[in-house]
Protein backbone atom coordinates (compact mmCIF):
# COMPACT_ATOMS: atom_id res chain seq x y z
CA UNK A 1 0.00 0.00 0.00
CA UNK A 2 1.42 3.37 -1.01
CA UNK A 3 1.45 6.57 1.03
CA UNK A 4 -1.38 7.78 -1.20
CA UNK A 5 -3.69 4.95 -0.10
CA UNK A 6 -2.60 5.22 3.55
CA UNK A 7 -3.26 8.97 3.45
CA UNK A 8 -6.82 8.33 2.25
CA UNK A 9 -7.36 5.90 5.16
CA UNK A 10 -5.83 8.45 7.53
CA UNK A 11 -8.14 11.20 6.25
CA UNK A 12 -11.16 8.93 6.67
CA UNK A 13 -10.26 8.15 10.29
CA UNK A 14 -9.41 11.82 10.98
CA UNK A 15 -12.77 12.95 9.54
CA UNK A 16 -14.66 10.43 11.69
CA UNK A 17 -12.67 11.63 14.70
CA UNK A 18 -13.49 15.28 13.94
CA UNK A 19 -17.26 14.63 13.76
CA UNK A 20 -17.13 12.32 16.80
CA UNK A 21 -15.18 14.79 18.91
CA UNK A 22 -17.35 17.67 17.69
CA UNK A 23 -20.50 15.84 18.79
CA UNK A 24 -18.90 14.93 22.14
CA UNK A 25 -17.84 18.55 22.73
CA UNK A 26 -21.28 19.98 21.95
CA UNK A 27 -22.94 17.39 24.23
CA UNK A 28 -20.37 18.09 26.96
CA UNK A 29 -21.01 21.83 26.71
CA UNK A 30 -24.77 21.28 26.91
CA UNK A 31 -24.44 19.26 30.12
CA UNK A 32 -21.45 20.82 31.91
CA UNK A 33 -20.69 24.12 30.16
CA UNK A 34 -17.15 25.19 29.33
CA UNK A 35 -16.40 27.59 26.47
CA UNK A 36 -12.93 26.20 25.51
CA UNK A 37 -14.34 22.72 24.90
CA UNK A 38 -17.21 24.12 22.81
CA UNK A 39 -14.75 26.20 20.81
CA UNK A 40 -12.48 23.26 19.95
CA UNK A 41 -15.56 21.12 19.23
CA UNK A 42 -16.81 23.66 16.67
CA UNK A 43 -13.33 23.87 15.10
CA UNK A 44 -13.37 20.07 14.97
CA UNK A 45 -16.73 20.01 13.15
CA UNK A 46 -15.37 22.51 10.62
CA UNK A 47 -12.27 20.35 10.16
CA UNK A 48 -14.58 17.36 9.60
CA UNK A 49 -16.08 19.22 6.64
CA UNK A 50 -12.71 20.52 5.34
CA UNK A 51 -10.82 17.21 5.43
CA UNK A 52 -12.96 15.34 2.81
CA UNK A 53 -12.78 18.42 0.53
CA UNK A 54 -8.99 18.35 0.89
CA UNK A 55 -9.10 14.57 0.28
CA UNK A 56 -10.85 15.00 -3.08
CA UNK A 57 -8.30 17.70 -4.07
CA UNK A 58 -5.46 15.39 -2.97
CA UNK A 59 -6.78 12.45 -5.02
CA UNK A 60 -7.12 14.66 -8.10
CA UNK A 61 -3.55 15.95 -7.62
CA UNK A 62 -2.13 12.41 -7.32
CA UNK A 63 -4.38 10.64 -9.82
CA UNK A 64 -1.37 9.26 -11.72
CA UNK A 65 0.24 7.74 -8.60
CA UNK A 66 -0.44 4.07 -7.83
CA UNK A 67 -2.33 2.89 -4.72
CA UNK A 68 0.20 0.04 -4.36
Amino acid sequence: MSLKAFHVIFLTVATLFCFGFGAWGVAFHASAGGTPVLLVALVSLLAGVALPIYGVWFLRKLKHVSYL
Binding site: V37, V40, A47
Partner: peptide, 13 residues
Protein backbone atom coordinates in the same frame (compact mmCIF):
# COMPACT_ATOMS: atom_id res chain seq x y z
CA UNK B 1 -6.42 19.14 29.44
CA UNK B 2 -8.89 18.43 26.59
CA UNK B 3 -8.39 21.72 24.63
CA UNK B 4 -4.59 21.27 24.55
CA UNK B 5 -5.00 17.60 23.62
CA UNK B 6 -7.35 18.60 20.79
CA UNK B 7 -4.98 21.30 19.58
CA UNK B 8 -2.19 18.73 19.53
CA UNK B 9 -4.42 16.36 17.54
CA UNK B 10 -4.87 19.03 14.86
CA UNK B 11 -1.13 19.73 14.91
CA UNK B 12 -0.47 16.05 14.12
CA UNK B 13 -3.19 15.87 11.44
Amino acid sequence: NVPIGTLNTFVLI
